[in-house]
């Protein structure tokens, strides 16, 4: 099959999923409306009423990892094409990527020594 067909299929899958979900919602709809009652739309908090919205400036304690993740994730984009041609190119590929990864890895080690690898 041509690659284009594959992507059409992919699109088709997405549409099918959406269609199934829509059908599900329709069936649910046929079973009646939700009765509006006080308290029901408030997120459960083990028995306590929390009428106030919960959104806030949330402290994400793992931001150190998140930054590191960005650096590594960028690098991984190069890895896939490299991996495909790896055997073809041979030892040169190993060295090329080895140096690249080593630099990145040193970054990880540095973060580690700076106590960056922990919950802040």
């Amino acid at each position: 099959m041509a690659p284009l067909t594959q992507y059409l299929l992919l699109l088709g899958m997405g549409i099918t999923t959406a269609g199934l979900v829509w059908m599900l919602y329709l069936i649910k709809q046929s079973l009646g409306q939700t009765l509006d009652e006080p308290g029901k739309d408030i997120p459960a908090e083990s028995g306590n009423l929390a009428p106030k919205p919960a959104w806030l400036r949330y402290h994400v304690h793992y931001y150190g990892y998140a930054l590191l993740f960005l650096a590594f994730d960028m690098e991984m984009a190069y890895m896939y094409p490299w991996a495909v041609v790896y055997r073809e190119v041979g030892i040169l590929a190993l060295l090329d990527m080895g140096v690249f990864l080593m630099i990145l890895f040193l970054g990880l080690i540095y973060t580690w020594t700076q106590l960056g690898l922990k919950r802040q």
């Binding site: 908090e45 083990s46 028995g47 306590n48 929390a50 919960a54 806030l56 400036r57 949330y58 402290h59």
Partner: peptide
């Protein structure tokens, strides 16, 4: 940062 007030239990 802002802090949440939250209850666990009863």
């Amino acid at each position: 940062m802002e802090w949440s007030d939250v209850q666990f239990g009863p």
